[in-house]
Design a protein around this nucleic acid. Structure first.
Lengths: 164, 164
DNA sequence: CTTGCTGCAACAGCTTCTGTTACATCCATC
DNA sequence: GATGGATGTAACAGAAGCTGTTGCAGCAAG
């Protein structure tokens, strides 16, 4: 899978932050978020760093540090996340310039720019219609396995992702 | 640019085939198409091979071989080309499975599947609204440089891409 | 000052795409 | 049937991007 999972990682982190916040957990460390995403903490810091620069999350340094949402989950759209993580556009133009002495070679790039631009527009419109709160709600109603006996609220197994 | 240029290459090839056909040139060799796209002929054969399997172009073997459109340019949509070249979807899910003992980790994938699916749908709808004929028309009205003095109809400079 | 976490650079490994070469295959033409 | 030109495809190298990892400097609450 060469596809970009950056939008997925960032959205997962934001949804987890939103749920933690709702549960009264003010901040989460990058290690706790990484435990939920099941990846390395540095990956999470890179992703949350993008979101911080976009003003979607806040970070607290020093002891007892961690991350928290900068705005309400219902107010953060997937489009903002998409722009924040700077994912590559779905289609790329020619890697090398087409033959400029060819009628098609001369005009194909502006023509495709138009098509790709329209595609990107409808894509952005769709992303703008979904918020982090929407994603979290969808994720919570979609629980494939029943919670097990010893499941404490917020416990994430051997690798704790919520409780300190 | 890591982005996929396969859709771009395939569309360029089809537009060039459409223009050649309109000019009375029945077939083009992969070398002639490659001259317009400015790439290697094998790249073009790979791309046109995809389009052939999808029934969008025809190939003639043997002497005087070459490629031609299997249908009218106005009847081939960008969506068919997109499906033919099997471009990777714009977004990827987690590379490793999220923590299944986490509420968000459990439900995030179906939730994102829904969002990404809707995005893909509007993207496909937009691609279906554009035909090869549309692209060719756009390319021909978008000629950044004026044709030069010695410009023969269809000549593509040192590397001939049309006349045999 | 200590402690815990962030910020960031550097690097390895993996995957994908592009580009190139080489060679077998096919078929209209001679 | 032989020939020649073009396709079909495998194999490989190079480049780029992303993920994952380690290491270390910087910051701030207690």
């Amino acid at each position: 899978m060469a596809a970009n999972s950056r939008l997925t990682i960032a959205t997962h982190a934001l949804a987890w932050l939103a749920l933690a916040q709702r549960r009264g957990q003010e901040v989460l460390t990058s290690e706790q978020v990484a435990a939920s995403v099941n990846t390395n903490a540095v990956i999470i810091r890179r992703s949350l760093g993008d979101l911080r620069r976009a003003g979607l999350v806040r970070v607290r340094h020093g002891a007892g540090a961690g991350w928290s949402l900068a705005r309400e989950p219902g107010d953060i759209t997937m489009l903002e996340v998409y722009d924040a993580v700077d994912a590559q556009p779905p289609f790329g133009l020619h890697r090398t310039e087409p033959n400029p002495e060819c009628p098609v070679g001369r005009g194909i790039r502006p023509a495709l720019d138009g098509v790709y631009g329209r595609v990107e527009q409808v894509m952005r419109r769709e992303l703008a219609d979904t918020s982090i709160a929407d994603v979290l709600r969808e994720a919570l109603v979609n629980q494939p396995t029943v919670r097990q006996s010893g499941d404490r609220r917020g416990a994430c197994g051997s690798r704790d992702c919520s409780n300190s």
